[in-house]
Design a protein around this nucleic acid. Structure first.
Length: 195
DNA sequence: ATTGAGATTATT
DNA sequence: ATAATCTCAATC
């Protein structure tokens, strides 16, 4: 297991990075507890030219500011007034690319995740949506702009071998307002046989 | 100052 | 299908 280095995040092909993040391991050490899981679903948001991206047309606000920074940090924002969303900022300064983490399969800290999610049993709903992932991992807007080199939030490589054929590309979720860009197949789902 | 809508989730 | 809930940006 090895922490992904800055140069991994600072490449300029956000679609490639979104695909490569599938099968990696997301860690958080928050509230004195370690939680971790394998990333199984991502979405790419490609800066100025992507109508679905918050930073479309270089829209630069308090919220989108961190997307313009160098890759390798977290972009966390609030959606629908109640859900935190975790994004990975990629590319380099001035290029607002990001990858939304939509789902993981839990590996560590299951107890903590259940508590945070207010659930009794581990099931598919524990961490299968961007809001759920953040809640289970304890990630909030307080972690906006945080470095992914740790010690609070980071991503490690794994021994898991991901066959490219197991990654399915589909249109992104919940962005009907983006016009033609709503059809771009920039959502990536890891397809594995399940019980 | 007000308003409308959003990268969602859990429940009816 | 819909309520819950709050930030942002566009408009007055």
């Amino acid at each position: 297991m090895k922490n992904l280095v800055e140069s991994f995040y600072q490449r300029h092909d956000v679609l490639l990075i979104a695909k490569e993040l599938i099968g990696k391991s997301l860690f958080s050490y928050i509230g004195k507890t370690l939680t971790a899981g394998i990333i199984i679903e991502t979405e790419a948001y490609r800066g100025p030219e992507d109508r679905a991206c918050h930073a479309f047309n270089h829209r630069r606000t308090l919220r989108t500011e961190v997307m313009f920074h160098d890759g390798g940090i977290a972009y966390v924002y609030l959606c629908y007034g109640m859900h935190n969303m975790l994004n990975i900022v990629t590319a380099t300064s001035g290029i607002p690319h990001a990858v939304l983490i939509r789902a993981i399969t839990p590996t560590h800290g299951l107890e903590t995740m259940l508590q945070r999610r207010n659930k009794m049993k581990v099931d598919r709903t524990l961490t299968n949506g961007p809001g759920s992932v953040c809640q289970a991992f304890g990630i909030t807007r307080d972690h906006n702009g945080l470095s992914l080199q740790g010690p609070t939030l980071w991503i490690e490589d794994t021994d898991l071998k991901v066959d490219p054929l197991q990654i399915i590309a589909t249109p992104r979720i919940g962005i009907d307002y983006a016009g033609p860009d709503a059809n771009l197949p920039w959502r990536f789902v890891y397809y594995s046989k399940r019980t």
